[in-house]
């Protein structure tokens, strides 16, 4: 099922705007990650899709049908909450069958569906347990089975992995992606973890202060950020402000060309990813900067280098070479890739 937002705005009773005229379209069978910092409006958008919030302005369409005024009971969506929101007084079986009971599905059919989902979620032997007797990962799988039971057109996840420890989180991410692929539903998940969004989603909707900053594939938002916010929010980056002089800006000893439309004297932001800086040993007189600290991070090492202007840059080098860039070493910097945005 496709999901479409057309000029959706949401204003809270106090007057605060959580979503500001947002428009986007999610394709059928796609898995989309809503990514942004706290207060960016991502959870509100998810709740609007579910029908738990009504937009102040604009329209929501699911599967080509206008659902703006439709209550959550009639939208046929599945929702998995961050805290799982399992019914604590019900067993796993009763939790999973809840939606089917509400839809008055015949008992045999209901039982078969619940057992199929419990098998799929590897929860068969936990059918008679209560939620408080399960681990976080198991509870998450129960919540997923409960959401999937009534065969929803759209599956929504509100920060689904936030309350789970790192190891299980990685397994669950893969599992959720597998569930999405096998069930063939359209999925939307909210996260503030960019690694999670880039790994799991087909496309990522980057939100900031209730606006859509960029909607694209993980590669697009990382490699071709559309705004300064996206460039600085997705992935690690060095962000500096420079004044344009003769159509160029000076960065680490190099004069980088700027869009001719930007007039001389105006300020721009230059964003350089730590992986896009090459270091070379240099004498103190010729060097651009000096290494002040380095940290081993596994496949790469992070070096923090201070330029002669006092700026501290983060640069990533292969871990095999890290002994060359020990604190105190003088280096020459070569910026291989950069993004420039108006300030």
């Amino acid at each position: 099922m496709t999901i479409e937002f057309v000029g959706v705005e949401n204003i809270y009773p106090g007057g605060a705007r959580s979503v500001r005229g947002v428009s986007f379209q999610i394709r059928e069978g796609e898995m989309v990650g809503l990514l942004g910092p706290s207060g960016s409006g991502k959870t509100t958008i998810l709740r609007i899709i579910a029908g738990l919030e009504r937009p102040t302005k604009g329209d929501v369409w699911i599967g080509g049908k206008r659902v703006t005024d439709l209550p959550p009971q009639k939208r046929n969506v599945g929702l998995v909450f961050q805290n799982y929101a399992l019914f604590q007084h019900m067993t796993v079986y009763d939790n999973v069958s809840f939606g089917l009971r509400e839809k008055r599905v015949p008992k045999d059919e209901m039982d078969a569906r619940v057992r199929e989902l419990l098998r799929f979620m590897r929860l068969e032997s936990y059918a008679n347990r209560f939620p408080h007797e399960l681990s976080g990962g198991q509870q998450q799988r129960v919540a997923l089975a409960r959401a999937l039971a009534p065969r929803p057109q759209v599956l929504l996840f509100d920060e689904p992995f936030a309350a789970i420890d790192t190891q299980i989180r990685r397994e669950l991410r893969t599992f959720v992606r597998q569930v999405h692929d096998e069930m063939g539903v359209t999925s939307v998940f909210v996260t503030h973890d960019q690694e999670e969004a880039l790994e799991v989603a087909d496309r990522v909707l980057v939100l900031h202060e209730g606006n859509v900053e960029q909607f694209g594939t993980p590669e697009e938002v990382y490699e071709k950020p559309g705004t300064l916010f996206v460039a600085s929010f997705i992935g690690e980056s060095n962000v500096w402000t420079r004044a344009v002089q003769n159509g160029r800006i000076e960065v680490a000893g190099a004069a980088l060309p700027v869009d001719p439309a930007v007039s001389d004297g105006s300020e721009v932001a230059v964003v350089v990813r730590p992986k896009d800086v090459e270091l070379q040993p240099a004498s103190e007189r010729e060097a651009h900067a000096q290494v002040v600290r380095s940290a081993f991070k596994g496949s790469y090492s992070a070096c923090w280098i201070r330029t002669k202007d006092g700026e501290v840059w983060e640069v990533h080098v292969p871990s095999a070479d890290r002994h060359r860039w020990s604190p105190g070493a003088w280096v020459h910097m070569n910026v291989t890739r950069w993004f420039i945005f108006p300030r």
Partner: peptide
């Protein structure tokens, strides 16, 4: 959230 989960699952 439990109440909201029930609504989304179709409960009046």
């Amino acid at each position: 959230r439990q109440e909201e989960a029930a609504w989304v699952l179709g409960a009046s």
